[in-house]
């Protein structure tokens, strides 16, 4: 286990390094950020000076190694736009994003698993067909459309929930959260539901496929021959055996939602990381984009590591090496 963790840590460093190179190279092709930070009527001398201050006058290789050197000292670069450390900007907005993502994943999982188990255990029943058609719809509908429809009905027509922004927050251990106030929840629900739709549909289909496979196994019939109830057989014996692919997809979706809740956050004016990313791309705020994408890579690596550990807890036949 220790050796495995060390191995995964080394792997993580390699991934992060590779991401930094790729992102750095890509960003250098996207134009000269100096024009974003200086007044439009600046003289050539002023432009040159700004370049020097930002370090853009050096070669790309030099820039990269300076960036890497700073990184190793804990300096992740400073936003051109906000003149603040890029990492602070991102971490400031991380709790807001995590909030809607966690609520979205809870919604998706608690609905997807029971429906998936039902559809997998009762293929061909009318309700199963309905569930599966619904899930196809969930996969096909684009998130922005779902968000707009929710706003139209719940915020405009029925006026149940607000259409945008983050509600009242309270600080818990220095982290602001809106999950402890009623106003906070009324703001969280619509974006969280919007985020959950696609994940719900995918998790449901994977759960169903797993349960259909598992239902054919002898140990399911053996459990029934022991006198276990149908429900007990499905959840006590079946589900855990069908869970490996579900957990895999859960991890990927979780990372995806954290990293790229961009569209939903934009529609609902949610002050999360995704909106920061979009804004930074518009403003060519290179340091923020680089740090953002490296953080995303880190999140994916960590989630996958945790998922691997989860595999071994779900299935004793799986060991990590």
């Amino acid at each position: 286990m220790f050796a495995y963790t060390v191995k995964r840590l080394i792997q993580m460093v390699v991934v992060l390094w590779a991401v930094s190179v790729i992102v750095f190279l890509m960003m250098s092709f996207t134009g000269d950020p100096v024009f974003m930070v200086i007044p439009i009527d600046s003289s050539d001398a002023e432009i040159e000076q700004a370049r020097r201050i930002l370090g853009l006058d050096r070669s790309l290789t030099e820039q990269y190694f300076i960036f890497l050197g700073n990184l190793l000292q804990g300096d992740f670069g400073t936003s051109y736009v906000f003149r603040q450390p890029a990492i602070d900007l991102i971490l400031e907005r991380l709790p807001a994003t995590m909030e809607i993502v966690v609520v979205a994943m809870v919604i998706a999982t608690t609905i997807a698993i029971p429906l998936g188990v039902y559809a997998g255990a009762n293929p061909g029943k009318p309700l199963s067909r309905l569930i599966m058609s619904g899930s196809l719809l969930g996969i096909s509908l684009p998130g922005f459309w779902v968000g707009m429809m929710l706003i139209y009905f719940f915020a405009v027509e029925w006026r149940i929930f607000p259409s945008s922004g983050r509600g009242d927050t309270v600080e818990v251990f220095g982290v602001p959260t809106s999950l402890l106030t009623a106003d906070g929840w009324s703001h969280v629900l619509l974006p969280a539901i919007t985020l959950s739709v696609g994940t719900l549909a995918i998790l449901l289909r994977i759960t169903r496929a797993g349960m259909m496979e598992v239902s054919r196994q002898d140990y399911m019939k053996f459990a029934r021959a022991k006198g276990v109830s149908r429900r007990g057989v499905l959840y006590g014996h079946g589900l855990r055996n069908g869970l490996i692919p579900v957990v895999t997809i859960f991890g990927l979706q979780l990372g995806d939602l954290i990293a790229f809740a961009t569209i939903t956050e934009t529609i609902f004016g949610w002050p999360g990381m995704g909106k920061l990313l979009v804004d930074s791309i518009y403003r060519a705020d290179r340091p923020v984009i680089v740090v953002y994408l490296m953080l995303v890579a880190l999140i994916f690596v960590v989630i996958n590591f945790l998922i691997d550990i989860l595999y071994t807890m779900i299935d004793p036949r799986i060991t990590v090496k």
């Binding site: 140990y219 019939k221 053996f222 021959a225 109830s229 055996n241 004793p316």
Partner: peptide
Amino acid sequence: EDRLRKIRGREIAMIFQDPMTSLNPVH
């Protein structure tokens, strides 16, 4: 069904053909 469930295991038990697959691998 609920009467049968009480009979299964208690009054009538079954032994399956393939012991490699009749036990649940995760328990």
